[in-house]
Computed example of a mutant assay.
Amino acid sequence: MAIRPAEQLIHKAAWLYYAHGLRQDQVASQLKISRASVAMYLRKARETGIVNISTSTQLFTDDVLARKLEDALKLDAVWIAPENGHVADPSTDIAVLAASVFLELVKKGDRIGVAWGRTVYTIADIMSYADLQDVTVVQLCGNLGAPYSYRPDQCTMEIARRLNAKGLNFYAPLVLTTEELARGLRAEPVIREQLSGIGDCDLALYSVGTVDADSHVVKCGALTAEEMAALRKAGAAGVIAGQIIDAEGKALDCSYNRRVISAALSSLRKIEKRLMVVQEDSKFEPLIAAITGGLCTHLVVGAHMARRLLDHAGPAAEKAS
């Protein structure tokens, strides 16, 4: 059967981008189409199976820096996306690597907890399709009213769709207006059962958020920039599944956390494999807090972040040895 003209453009765009290594703007120029069209064609190429993105994760796990980080931070596994000066957005390489790592960690029959954010949704969007019908993907925290593609329910269902798995959404808001309302909602049988089952997950996928004006919880309206600044002065260091953590990776004692509908950090720590993916260098301090609090067992980062982590852990690692 002949390829239709529209499909031919998808094939050509994918061939130029993946086989010849052209940038998206170069592909657009050669095919005389817009860069937005190139991005759309590349996505269709992945979704329809024309292109199946995969990486040799062994290539990265053999990296000496990764081994040193595992020892220094006492993590089960670390994967490092190498620096590539030809890539305009190095975070894409981290997401591609993380998608491959995630698929390798998933086993048949697994129960997977998924948080939210741009990083998680990017991984879901770039992930190859797999047929894992006996896998369940569970939302780790309540939902947002904001119209973002990286809402908790969107992240959960997109990953479930990619795995051909069952998706289990949290039908509750992320943050309530009062602590009393939050206590009452947590006591509802359906919500209580879902929260209590988080610790039974086999794998968790999340990132860690910042505690500044660019934080997702600020952008989605859960907190104002002024409220976040006050929490930072009170010891806030990062955001995990919508919750504020301090420098020790513990839940910050604050009204916001008492109004949040999310898996308890103690439940997250019970999950055997806790895969954290960090794309931005601005998340260094939040990542340190998450690792300190035992919220990460498996880590995917870029080379620059990996070196910063090793430099930070160096004195402590030498002292321990």
Rank of each mutant, 00 (worst) to 15 (best):
G242D: 02
R192I: 04
A124P: 01
S34I: 12
T178I: 06
A98C: 03
A263E: 04
R274P: 04
I94M: 01
A172R: 08
H20G: 00
Q279E: 11
H20Y: 09
L265Q: 07
T136L: 06
R274G: 12
G197K: 12
A99D: 05
E83Q: 09
Q30H: 11
G109M: 10
K44Q: 15
D93S: 14
A165F: 10
M305T: 15
L42P: 00
S262W: 07
A320R: 15
Y17H: 14
A251V: 13
S255G: 07
G142Y: 07
A95H: 12
V260Q: 00
L75M: 08
Q133T: 15
L205Y: 05
L203G: 05
G49F: 04
L65T: 13
I240C: 07
E280Q: 12
G113L: 10
A306I: 12
S255I: 08
V27Q: 02
E179M: 04
K319E: 13
R23G: 14
I198N: 01
D93M: 12
I198C: 03
A247W: 02
R258A: 06
A77P: 00
A19N: 13
T55F: 06
I261M: 14
A98D: 05
V300F: 10
L195A: 09
K283Y: 00
I50H: 09
A28T: 01
K107E: 13
I112R: 09
Y256M: 05
V101G: 09
M157C: 01
K233R: 10
M1A: 12
A72R: 08
S282F: 09
A251Y: 02
Q243V: 01
L65P: 00
V239H: 00
R151T: 12
K68C: 04
A39P: 00
N84L: 05
E83H: 11
R274I: 14
K273L: 12
E158R: 14
E188M: 10
P5H: 06
A66H: 10
G21K: 13
V87E: 11
A36G: 11
G314E: 14
D200W: 01
V64T: 10
E180S: 15
A230M: 07
G117C: 07
L9W: 04
R111H: 06
T48S: 13
D125Q: 13
G21W: 06
I112C: 07
I33M: 14
M127K: 01
L65W: 09
C141K: 06
C296F: 05
A306L: 10
M1N: 07
A165V: 09
E248C: 13
V135A: 03
I244Y: 02
E7A: 14
E193N: 14
S266M: 05
L69I: 15
I126T: 10
G209E: 06
D246V: 01
Q243H: 07
T55I: 03
E280Y: 10
G235P: 05
M228N: 09
S282V: 11
S267Q: 13
I261D: 01
